[in-house]
Amino acid sequence: MAISTLSPPGAALDAAPSQVRLVGRRRPGRWAAAAAVAVLGAMLAHTLLTNQRFQWPTVAHYFTQESVLRGLWLTLWLTAVTFAAGFVLGIGLAAMRLWGGPLLQSVSFGFVWIVRSVPPLVLLLFWFQLASLYPRLSLGIPFGPEFVSVDTTHLIGPLAAAFIALTIDVAAFSAEIVRGGLVSVDHGQTEAARSLGLNPRRIFRRIVLPQAMPAIIPASGNLLIGLLKSTSLVSVIAVTDLLYSVQLIYNQNFQVMPLLLVATVWYIVITSVLAVGQYFVERRYARGRAGARPFAEILRDAARLRPRSPGPAR
């Protein structure tokens, strides 16, 4: 803020507060940027509404077509099951990395390193073409006789390959998300809790996990939204998800852009819903972080050494 008076510069310090007029700081750069963004937004809205090549009536016609809705349902189902399975596997990998022995830590690190190094599309094609590497899988004594053998030519179909590939990809990234959230909690807090006699399970449930969740939730929400968009890769192996459903339609009527807009709008709607849900979950786990209670009080509540007493009466 700037001080503006009619007195000489040296008299501003001696002026009474009622005689000082505060002038807001001028920000010409901010106003220019806002004006440029407003103009670009208006131009974008104008071209979306006036360009007839977008064919919005056609988009509205196919938006709720039965085949499109079936593809949408498969996309949602594939996103949900692969995220749930991958996150559970990722928690196990994070536990191996944090609390396992040298062998388990090496296995967890190697799994995460390899999967994060391979693009999801390559991983998807690898599982889809698994029969070319292993035409037959068998179960028996290692390096000994086989009891059961299965032909892999028809064992892993397109949907199974999509599920396995996406689950593995989610597991690798969620393992690092969970591990990063857990290691962000100060180790001194767990040491202080042990000194009070708390068992490891209570320490993890009442002290470590509540403080790790605000770091885990945002990254997990971003991973879920990224997984939703990554499901479009399964159209390469002819899984009838949302994108492949609209591709089947525009291969017949050659209205490519309107059908791609149908899929785009659906992805925007679902992503917006997930973003709103992520916001409320983040707010749920971030309560009290701005004015957090002292750690000693948290320890007393976790150990249940005494009930919380009400504040002094006023």
Results as ranks from 00 to 15, higher is better:
residue 183 V to P: 02
residue 55 Q to I: 09
residue 168 I to T: 12
residue 53 R to N: 15
residue 247 Q to Y: 08
residue 280 F to L: 15
residue 90 G to M: 04
residue 163 F to C: 10
residue 26 R to F: 09
residue 158 P to H: 08
residue 2 A to I: 14
residue 99 W to G: 13
residue 233 L to A: 02
residue 99 W to R: 13
residue 250 Y to K: 03
residue 58 T to N: 10
residue 259 L to F: 00
residue 29 G to D: 09
residue 183 V to F: 02
residue 205 R to Y: 08
residue 115 V to N: 01
residue 243 L to N: 15
residue 125 L to I: 14
residue 64 T to E: 00
residue 176 E to W: 00
residue 46 H to I: 00
residue 137 L to P: 03
residue 23 V to R: 11
residue 243 L to K: 11
residue 237 I to K: 05
residue 209 L to W: 14
residue 182 L to W: 07
residue 12 A to N: 11
residue 199 N to K: 10
residue 230 S to L: 03
residue 292 A to F: 02
residue 186 D to Y: 05
residue 59 V to P: 07
residue 227 L to Y: 00
residue 14 D to G: 05
residue 114 I to R: 00
residue 149 S to C: 09
residue 244 Y to M: 13
residue 190 T to Y: 07
residue 300 R to C: 05
residue 232 S to C: 04
residue 215 A to C: 02
residue 235 S to W: 07
residue 61 H to M: 06
residue 109 F to Y: 06
residue 18 S to M: 03
residue 19 Q to I: 10
residue 172 A to E: 05
residue 11 A to M: 09
residue 35 A to M: 10
residue 82 T to N: 10
residue 261 L to G: 04
residue 258 P to C: 14
residue 238 A to P: 04
residue 135 P to R: 09
residue 216 I to M: 15
residue 227 L to S: 06
residue 14 D to V: 00
residue 195 S to V: 04
residue 95 A to N: 02
residue 241 D to Y: 01
residue 89 L to A: 15
residue 163 F to L: 15
residue 216 I to E: 03
residue 111 F to S: 07
residue 118 V to H: 06
residue 211 Q to D: 04
residue 59 V to W: 07
residue 180 G to C: 06
residue 288 G to K: 01
residue 193 A to C: 05
residue 185 V to C: 09
residue 293 R to A: 13
residue 106 S to V: 02
residue 293 R to D: 03
residue 215 A to D: 05
residue 73 W to L: 10
residue 276 V to S: 07
residue 291 G to M: 07
residue 50 T to A: 13
residue 30 R to E: 12
residue 97 R to N: 07
residue 74 L to A: 07
residue 278 Q to G: 03
residue 82 T to P: 06
residue 269 V to E: 06
residue 50 T to R: 12
residue 170 V to M: 08
residue 286 A to H: 01
residue 102 P to C: 07
residue 107 V to C: 11
residue 138 S to N: 09
residue 246 V to T: 12
residue 88 V to T: 08
residue 109 F to L: 06
residue 228 L to C: 01
residue 30 R to K: 10
residue 232 S to R: 10
residue 186 D to G: 04
residue 46 H to N: 13
residue 209 L to P: 08
residue 29 G to W: 12
residue 251 N to P: 01
residue 125 L to S: 09
residue 44 L to T: 12
residue 126 F to Q: 00
residue 70 R to A: 13
residue 65 Q to D: 15
residue 257 M to L: 15
residue 194 R to D: 07
residue 6 L to D: 12
residue 204 F to Q: 11
residue 233 L to N: 02
residue 46 H to K: 12
residue 269 V to H: 06
residue 218 P to A: 11
residue 232 S to Y: 11
residue 165 A to L: 06
residue 293 R to V: 13
residue 96 M to Q: 01
residue 310 P to T: 06
residue 235 S to C: 06
residue 105 Q to N: 05
residue 42 A to K: 02
residue 137 L to T: 05
residue 255 Q to E: 15
residue 104 L to Q: 12
residue 21 R to T: 13
residue 136 R to C: 01
residue 61 H to Q: 11
residue 117 S to A: 14
residue 237 I to T: 05
residue 58 T to R: 14
residue 107 V to A: 15
residue 108 S to H: 00
residue 38 A to H: 00
residue 194 R to K: 14
residue 78 L to Q: 01
residue 262 V to W: 01
residue 210 P to I: 02
